[in-house]
């Protein structure tokens, strides 16, 4: 099978790979680039564990054909730290006990980041809406919502 050359920005770095036609972005990130932070949960767009940002907008990488991100910027959980410094959302998730098994956490954090990047002061309802595509089977939604709100208010305090 002939391979398709693919070049895009991955967490700020230019990467180039060859993919089979039909390869989805989740497989490209995990198996070809080696970024294991997006998770496979369903492969059907039902759980949100594979959520990534493409040019700043939230996408399900399992339902995104890899070749469609050519020339675009893909951001995953692996790229949201500033050097060794955790992103305010990561700190807020830690401090608010917003993870149990941790498997949905990368997707949750990307969904939360997409929200705060466009709306730094969301209401509780807006946070609920923003993570409504992400399933947490340990059912820890309340601490997650609280963590996103805490990160948002923390951002205001420092601004």
């Amino acid at each position: 099978m002939s391979k398709i050359p693919l070049q895009f920005r991955h967490n700020g770095r230019e990467v180039a790979i060859f993919v089979d036609g039909g390869t989805n972005l989740l497989v490209a990130l995990r198996e070809l680039i080696g970024d294991m932070t997006p998770k496979f949960g369903c492969g059907q767009g039902g759980c949100g564990a594979c959520s990534v940002l493409i040019d700043g907008a939230l996408h399900l990488s399992c339902l995104t054909l890899a070749e469609t991100v050519a020339g675009r910027s893909v951001e995953t959980l692996d790229g949201i730290k500033q050097g060794p410094q955790l992103h305010p959302l990561q700190r807020a998730f830690m401090e608010n006990f917003a993870a149990q098994c941790g498997y949905c956490t990368p997707g949750m954090l990307m969904a939360a980041k997409a929200l705060l990047d466009r709306n730094p002061q969301p209401s509780r309802a807006e946070v609920v809406e923003a993570i409504s595509g992400n399933i947490c089977r340990c059912t820890g939604y309340e601490p997650i919502i609280n963590a996103v709100l805490a990160a948002a208010s923390g951002g205001r305090a420092s601004a």
Partner: peptide
């Protein structure tokens, strides 16, 4: 395990290549 969870570095079985 919280730091691993929020940084995506907790290693699940499928994270081995």
């Amino acid at each position: 395990d919280m730091l691993g969870h929020v940084t995506g570095t907790s290693t699940y079985f499928d994270d081995h290549k």
